[in-house]
Computed example of a mutant assay.
Amino acid sequence: MHFLDIGEVVERTGVPPSTLRYYEEIGLICSVARHGLRRQFDHDVLLKLSLIGMGKAAGFSLPEIAGMFGRDDRPDIPRDQLHDRAKELERQIIELRMLRDVIRHVADCPAPSHLECPSFRKLLKSATNASASRSPRPTIGRTKSTRQR
């Protein structure tokens, strides 16, 4: 069976060797052999690295991603966490769209002052309302030190 040399994995994935060694150290991936001092990997490592990259891009931590691989590399996907993350990403998308619209308007607005522009004020109010509606509300009885934990 032909294994992938660490250099081939780096070339195909763009993941630096130091990251591959770290992922191996924390148990996310494992090498199957060595050729001299160079690690050798099974072809499945490419899929696993894609999944790790996607998990990181979605905002999951490496320990969370490791937990999703489960035992014996059988996926143990916490679907409720995935739904929660998808909702959070949707919220971020909405915020970024609003920010994009405000920036485009500021760039293109013919008004002498943006503060005089009714469209700008409307966009700004919408962005402010959206931001205020998702801010965590302080809970009665909680002290500052307990909120920081």
Rank of each mutant, 00 (worst) to 15 (best):
F3S: 05
F3A: 06
L4Q: 06
L4W: 01
L4A: 05
L4D: 02
D5W: 09
D5R: 11
I6S: 14
E8L: 12
V10A: 15
T13L: 08
V15N: 10
P16S: 12
P16H: 11
S18K: 15
S18I: 13
T19C: 14
Y23P: 03
E25Y: 04
I26D: 03
I26S: 04
L28Y: 04
V32F: 14
V32Q: 08
V32A: 14
A33W: 03
L37M: 14
L37G: 11
R39T: 01
F41S: 12
F41Q: 08
D42E: 03
H43S: 13
D44T: 06
L46N: 02
L47H: 08
L47R: 12
K48W: 15
K48N: 09
L51I: 04
I52K: 00
G53Y: 00
M54H: 09
G55M: 00
K56S: 02
K56D: 01
A57E: 15
G59C: 12
G59M: 11
S61N: 08
S61F: 01
S61I: 04
L62K: 00
P63D: 05
G67M: 04
G67H: 10
G67Q: 14
F69L: 00
G70Y: 00
R71F: 01
D72W: 05
D73R: 05
R74N: 08
P75R: 00
P75K: 00
D76K: 04
D76F: 02
P78Q: 14
D84T: 07
D84F: 05
A86N: 03
K87L: 10
K87P: 01
K87G: 13
R91H: 04
I93S: 09
I93L: 09
L96G: 15
R97G: 06
R100M: 13
D101I: 01
D101L: 13
V102W: 09
I103V: 15
I103E: 08
H105R: 11
A107L: 09
A107Y: 12
D108F: 08
D108G: 10
P110A: 01
A111Y: 07
P112S: 09
S113G: 15
S113V: 10
H114S: 06
L115V: 14
S119F: 02
F120D: 03
R121C: 13
K122R: 15
L123P: 05
L123D: 04
S126Y: 11
A127M: 11
N129C: 05
A130E: 07
A130D: 04
A132D: 04
A132N: 03
S135V: 02
R137K: 10
R137A: 06
P138H: 02
P138F: 02
I140F: 06
G141D: 08
T143V: 08
T143Q: 14
S145C: 03
T146C: 02
R149A: 11
R149W: 13
